Simulated assay, not measured.
Amino acid sequence: MTDRSGGPGVPLAPAVDGHVHLMPERLMGAIRESLNDVAGWEFPHGADVTAVEAELRRHGVARYVALPYAHRAGIARELNDWLVDAAADSEMCIPFATVHPEDDVGAVVREAFDAGARGLKFQCPVQEVAPDDERLGPAYELCAEYGRPVLFHAGTAPMFEDSAHVGIDRFASFVRSYPDVRACAAHMGTFEHEAFIDLAREHDRVFLDTCFAMATVVGDYVDFDPAAIPDAVFEDLAGQVLYGSDFPNMPHAYEREYEGLLARDLSESAFDALFRGAASRFLGPEVDLPAADAHPTDGAEP
């Protein structure tokens, strides 16, 4: 059962964070510099594995999904290898892989899956590839073969409303073409959250994650109010909406990501689905996730 005490030590234990970024130092630095240039965001959190995992444990997170993305051709193999190696030394990390559409898509993805990557991540506007881009077909076929999911930045938030690579139409086109592949739209699909929620109601293999969109401070950075998504969505789509944070690439304290969710008037089953059960459904039975009575932050600093 999710601890909703809000007290020190284990404010939401035991949780799964379905949206965390781990990348080599140089690449992470470049991404942060770009976000600072475009949006003016500052990043107070350390981005190395040790710092990331220490902060996640402090908030009761037992496992997290680590998401890379290749912004240009030719770097995905090295990036995937780095992340799988990092996960091998961690009890918390669940590594995903990525691929660029101009790579040998099938070969890169098969190698990553065979090495231990548990799914795929596409940052569609940055990678300039839509979910329904035919060049990604070999990747999706391998997802179906291996039973691995895909997580997309498929919505227009926070600054991609003019991008041809995002939006409900491109994501829905993918869902129609690959109905057996589990697919998650990050950030609740904002700024088209209503359409993404409707699509999830129609397809039980469509998932949404909460990262950034449901933060209590999201309105300080983009024009979105978490109250636009009522409690009924989390009840009706229990098992399809998973908690995620975007950590460590967030310009605010980690607890801002979950405090508003814990304050909602949800049933215990909806809370457990949000912080664990949906992640289990999305990742599949081969990924070991914490039991409801586990407390991974015992002994951690408050």
Rank of each mutant, 00 (worst) to 15 (best):
Q123L: 09
R201P: 00
V222I: 15
Q240C: 07
R57E: 03
E134R: 15
L27C: 05
I31G: 01
A200I: 05
D169P: 02
P226R: 11
R63G: 08
D169G: 03
E33H: 09
A130M: 00
P131G: 09
S90A: 11
R72T: 14
F224S: 09
A15H: 10
E25K: 11
S177H: 05
L199E: 08
A107L: 13
V217K: 12
M214V: 04
F207I: 10
P24A: 14
L274F: 04
I197Q: 00
R170L: 03
G60K: 01
D81N: 13
W82T: 00
A97Q: 01
R281F: 04
I94V: 15
M23H: 10
S34C: 11
P101S: 04
A273M: 09
V150W: 00
S280D: 14
R205K: 14
H153Q: 04
S5V: 09
D298K: 10
K121T: 06
L79N: 08
L35Y: 12
L262G: 13
A86L: 09
D133A: 02
H153M: 07
A294V: 09
Y64H: 15
L151V: 15
A300Y: 09
R256L: 13
V206A: 11
V65Y: 05
A30D: 00
F234M: 07
F174H: 09
G9M: 08
S163K: 06
R63I: 01
P290G: 04
T210Q: 07
H193V: 02
R170A: 08
D209P: 05
F171M: 00
I31Y: 10
F212A: 13
D288H: 04
G277S: 00
S173C: 09
D272T: 08
D180Q: 12
F171A: 07
D272K: 01
F196K: 05
E102K: 11
T297W: 07
S90V: 12
D17H: 12
D293F: 00
E286C: 02
G9E: 10
A73M: 04
E255N: 15
G29S: 05
H295Y: 06
G147C: 11
E25H: 13
F224M: 00
P179L: 07
V181Y: 02
H100R: 07
D89C: 09
P101L: 04
V108H: 11
L79P: 06
D198W: 01
L35S: 05
D236W: 10
E161W: 02
E268H: 06
D204M: 11
G284N: 07
A66M: 08
E91S: 15
H193F: 02
R182F: 06
P101V: 09
N36Q: 11
G155Q: 03
